[in-house]
Amino acid sequence: MAEHVILIAGPMGAGKTTAIQSLSEIPVVSTEAANTDRATANKATTTVALDYGEITLDGVEKVRLYGVPGQRRFDYMWRILEERALGLILLINNDGQDPVGDMLELIKDFSALQERGGVVIGVTRSDVQEYPHTSQYVDSIREVYPHITAPVFSVDARNRDHMLITLTALLFNIQAQSEAPMEDVA
């Protein structure tokens, strides 16, 4: 049975667990614990190991969706889970303290996966906090990582269509990047 692992990462409170719940066709396996770090994200629980969901294709082939904890102190889970991953959906909450900085930092943290597969950015909670606009995320990526053409979408993690668009863009991007010829300046 073919399996494809997609990783969903992002800061605490970005909507990773919700995104997996939107996409998954099975009840999501979650590892939530009571959140004592209310200063970082004001929510009751937080993921401390992983979230897991599945999309089944053709009856047997599965896309496995793994959400990793947002806090850096759990980064061993990032390393464990990224090994088998095909690509990365990076969710960034627009109402964070420095959402663009968070994104740039996480792209660096997952650079091996980005280079091997690909990354797509989903900006959440832009209904709550209008700025920064998605164009600022795009400009920052182009400035710091000029070799990456990562899709940046504004998404609602509760919206299955949004999350499917994000996942599909990731797959197309991985496909196009892996078929692309080497660039050679004439």
Binding site: H4, I55, L57, D58, E61, V63, L86, G117, T168, L171, F172, I174, Q175, S178, E179, A180, P181, M182, E183, D184, V185, A186
Partner: peptide, 28 residues
Amino acid sequence: VEIRRLQTVTQPEQVSRVGGLIGRFKSK
């Protein structure tokens, strides 16, 4: 900037794997 045309794909396994996956997403 001119791009050198290459006839070979750079990561053939990845291409067929993801290409097949996209196809099955389309059907589903």
